[in-house]
Amino acid sequence: MQFLQQLINGISWGSIYALIALGYTMVYGVLRLINFAHGDIYMLGAMFGYYVAVFLGVAEHASGVRVLSVVLISMLGCGLIGVGIERFCYRPLRKAPRLAALMTAVGVSLLLENGGQLIFGADPKFFPPLIHTREIFRFHEIVLNNIQLMIFAVSLLLMFLLHWIVMKTRMGKAMRAVSFSHDAAGLVGIPVNRVISFTFFLGSLLAAAAGILVSLSNPKVEPLMGIMPGLKAFVAAVLGGIGNMMGAMIGGLIMGISEVLVSGYISSTYRDAFAFFILIFILLYKPSGLLGKTGPEKL
């Protein structure tokens, strides 16, 4: 019984990791770069959500339209910031050694974290309850609440949308072409830079959505909240096979579930350590990840 409850919690966290991991994996696909600032975009999503919600007074008068605007405005804001980061921090280093871009990514991450503390303040903010928690399902002691269900449903919806974009639209095909080779893509007339911007935009949208979804159940929002989920989502992306979208989703779910099981059955002290244990293990024994190389769709 307890196991099922843990599974529900794990899937809920797992979908969040999956959403963030998709951004890592897509950017890696088109640039072969680990965008370490990606976890901080997740933080910005929650932060923007907080400010927009306060500005619109959603806490006092919650309505469907307002909640939706909170979500969409913060997603859009993060999307643009993601595009800006690529344009001004990574693009100038496109031809530089990869280590330079990687160090820059770490630098951008630190900038967002410390800049966030400077601008938003280091103290946690209370994210207004956009949606009130209520049970929608109870069986003995297993409880599923509406927010858990929503996290899962919205994540699933976003992943389907993303999958559709990548597989069916011309822009999505172009993303896959760019991930194959920048030169070959340019030679057939694909505007490579625009495709890369688009990839950052999509990835940042998903991270922002994850930030807001998490804030619905964990309303404490602060500038360093992206570090741990960002790292874990990175582990999820590596676990699934970096560059592989299906892998990122599966990796995210495995991370979420195993983490909740570890804190439930062993000790919550080992929760974070376990994530890095997975990383070390996968790097030692299957560095290409679960779906790496032979996966159904490489991006």
Binding site: R176, F180, S181, D183, A184, A185
Partner: peptide, 11 residues
């Protein structure tokens, strides 16, 4: 038509 063909193998 580039050297080595460079077709998008994954597409």
């Amino acid at each position: 038509v580039p050297e080595g063909r460079m077709v998008f193998a994954n597409l």
